[in-house]
Amino acid sequence: MDIREIQNLIKFVSKSEVSEVKYKTKDFEITIKTPLGGNENISYVAQPAMYPAPAAAPAPAAAPQAAPAADTPKDAAADDSKYIAIKSPMIGTFYRKPAPDKDVFVNVGDEVTPGKVVCVIEAMKLFNQIESEISGKIVKILVDDATPVEYDQPLFLVDPS
Rank of each mutant, 00 (worst) to 15 (best):
M50E: 08
P64T: 11
V149Y: 05
S81A: 13
A46K: 14
P58R: 09
D2S: 13
Q47N: 12
A78T: 02
A99K: 15
S81Q: 10
V104G: 09
A46F: 11
G115S: 08
E20Q: 08
I6K: 08
P54R: 03
A77L: 13
P48L: 10
Y51V: 08
K11W: 00
T113C: 01
P68D: 10
F105G: 05
I32K: 08
V158T: 06
A46P: 06
Y51D: 10
L155W: 04
P73S: 03
I84N: 15
A62T: 06
K11V: 07
V143C: 01
V118T: 10
A61K: 06
A59D: 08
S132W: 10
E29I: 09
S135R: 14
S135V: 05
A63K: 14
Y23L: 04
V158Q: 02
P89D: 11
D103M: 09
I130K: 02
A70M: 09
P64A: 07
L9W: 00
F156M: 03
D80F: 11
E133M: 09
Q65F: 12
K140L: 11
D75I: 05
T72M: 05
G136W: 00
D71E: 14
Q153H: 05
I141D: 08
S161Y: 13
F94T: 00
M124P: 06
I130T: 03
A66K: 14
V118Q: 14
N8G: 14
L9H: 12
D27M: 01
S135F: 09
A59I: 10
F28I: 07
A123N: 08
V108E: 13
A78P: 01
V108F: 04
A55D: 11
D110F: 09
Y83K: 03
A67F: 09
D103Q: 06
E133Q: 15
A77I: 12
S81M: 14
K116I: 15
A63V: 14
Q129V: 03
A70V: 11
E40C: 00
T34N: 00
F105Y: 15
I121T: 01
K26P: 04
G136Q: 00
I10Q: 00
S14A: 11
P35H: 06
K74W: 03
K82E: 05
D101A: 13
K97H: 06
F105I: 03
I10C: 00
E29N: 06
N128W: 01
M90R: 01
V143P: 13
Y44T: 12
F156G: 03
L126W: 02
T113R: 09
K87Y: 02
E29K: 15
I141V: 14
P148M: 14
E111Y: 12
V18G: 04
L142C: 08
G115C: 07
V21F: 07
V149Q: 14
D145A: 04
T72K: 15
A146N: 15
V108I: 15
D144E: 13
P160K: 13
Y151C: 06
K26H: 10
V106W: 07
L155C: 05
Q65V: 12
I86C: 05
G136P: 00
P160H: 01
P73F: 08
E111D: 02
T93G: 04
E5Q: 15
V118D: 05
I6L: 15
E131V: 06
G115F: 13
K82A: 08
A66E: 10
E122G: 08
D103T: 07
T113G: 03
A146Y: 05
I84M: 07
G38T: 00
A56D: 07
G37M: 11
G37E: 07
M124T: 05
